[in-house]
Lab assay of single mutants.
Amino acid sequence: VGDQVLEIVPSNEEQIKNLLQLEAQEHLQLDFWKSPTTPGETAHVRVPFVNVQAVKVFLESQGIAYSIMIED
Rank of each mutant, 00 (worst) to 15 (best):
L19S: 01
F58W: 14
I16M: 06
Q25S: 10
G40L: 05
L6N: 00
N18A: 15
V52Y: 08
E41F: 06
V1F: 11
I8Q: 00
F32V: 04
V5C: 15
T37V: 07
F32N: 02
T38K: 13
Q53M: 11
S61N: 11
L6F: 15
N12K: 02
V55E: 00
I70L: 11
A54Q: 09
V52W: 10
I16Q: 02
K17Y: 11
I68P: 04
R46M: 06
K17D: 06
E41L: 06
N12C: 04
V50W: 13
A24N: 08
Q15S: 03
A54P: 04
L28S: 03
L19G: 00
F58P: 00
T38Y: 09
V57W: 13
E14S: 08
D31N: 12
T42E: 03
M69S: 05
R46Q: 06
S61P: 00
H44F: 15
G63I: 02
G2T: 10
P48V: 03
E26C: 14
L22Y: 06
E41W: 10
L28Y: 08
V1D: 12
D72E: 14
E71S: 10
G2A: 07
N18F: 14
D72V: 14
L22Q: 02
A65S: 09
E26H: 13
F49Q: 14
E23R: 15
P39M: 05
K56H: 05
F58A: 04
S67A: 07
N51Q: 08
P39G: 04
R46D: 02
E23A: 15
V55D: 00
V9Q: 06
Q15L: 01
S35D: 05
L30A: 03
G40Q: 04
Q4I: 15
E7G: 05
R46Y: 11
S11V: 14
F49T: 10
Q4W: 15
L28E: 02
L30D: 01
L6E: 00
V45E: 00
I16A: 03
E26S: 12
M69E: 04
E23P: 04
V55S: 00
F58D: 01
E13V: 10
E71R: 04
D3T: 11
I64D: 00
L19T: 01
G2Y: 13
V1P: 12
P36I: 07
L20F: 10
K56A: 06
L28D: 02
V45G: 01
H27G: 10
I68R: 03
S35I: 14
P48N: 06
V5R: 04
G63S: 06
G2W: 12
L28K: 03
L19R: 00
Q21K: 15
G63M: 06
A54L: 12
Q62F: 15
I70N: 09
D31W: 12
V5M: 11
L28T: 03
E23L: 14
I16K: 02
S35C: 14
E26L: 13
V55R: 00
E41C: 08
T37W: 09
I8P: 01
I70K: 09
Q15H: 07
Q15D: 08
Q25F: 12
P48M: 04
L28H: 03
K56W: 03
Q62S: 10
V57S: 13
Q62K: 13
L6H: 00
A54C: 08
G63E: 05
L19I: 08
P48C: 05
A43Y: 15
A54W: 13
D3W: 14
P36S: 05
G40Y: 07
F58C: 03
G40T: 03
A43D: 01
E26P: 07
E26I: 12
N51F: 13
Q4A: 12
E13S: 07
T42C: 10
Q25D: 12
I70M: 09
E26M: 12
T37H: 06
A54D: 06
V9F: 13
L30N: 01
R46H: 13
L28F: 10
M69C: 13
